[in-house]
């Protein structure tokens, strides 16, 4: 049952990803994109309260106007070298999960946010298959004129946050 559900979910997201607007940001030297509809807001780096007994990429929780939301460091999530937080460092607050009650907001720490880009259907390309692909994080690639945008399926990136938490806790 889970299998079929995942499959349909994937088809739907891919269709949604095929074209549209993306918020692009940098992690290290690579430029990534998150579907703009998933992005709720962008805030500067704030004081993060660490959350004990969670994987290292979960930086902790922040107070977003009275609502507590967890924050993850995308660099650490993707196994990159941690970087010092600078003035450029931003927290991109995204909505993940289904619409309505079940959706949660999660902050993603990125090096710097660059712009909002349109990726047309013909510029979209599925991610190359790699033997050692760890997760399904990449929805596809956006081939722009001069560069390539790595389009993230943010639901998948955040989606395994909770099992990870549970694993660490148990």
């Amino acid at each position: 049952m889970t299998l079929t559900m995942e499959n349909t979910g994937k088809v739907a997201t891919n269709a949604a990803f095929a074209a549209g607007k993306f918020l692009s940001f940098y992690l290290s030297k690579e430029e990534y994109g998150i579907a703009i509809l998933k992005v709720r807001e962008i805030i500067g780096m704030v004081d993060v309260t660490p959350l004990p007994r969670t994987p290292s990429f979960v930086r902790g929780v922040i107070n977003l106007r009275g609502k507590i939301i967890p924050v993850i460091d995308l660099r650490l999530k993707f196994g990159m070298e941690p970087a010092e937080y600078t003035n450029e460092t931003c927290i991109v607050v995204v909505d993940v999960g289904r619409e309505g009650e079940n959706s949660v907001q999660v902050g993603c720490i990125v090096d710097t946010v660059s712009e909002v880009l349109s990726v047309e259907a013909e510029q979209f390309e599925s991610a190359p298959r790699c033997a050692n692909a760890a997760g399904d994080y990449i929805a596809g690639l956006g081939k722009l004129k001069d560069r390539v945008l790595i389009l993230l399926d943010i639901d998948k990136v955040i989606g395994d946050l909770n099992p990870a938490l549970l694993g660490a806790a148990g």
């Binding site: 309260t49 959350l51 004990p52 007994r53 929780v61 507590i68 967890p70 938490l165 549970l166």
Partner: peptide
């Protein structure tokens, strides 16, 4: 709530 779906972090009931 800590804004995490599902179970909470052990040892912590909220914020």
């Amino acid at each position: 709530s800590l804004g995490l779906q599902g179970d909470r972090v052990s040892g912590v009931s909220g914020g």
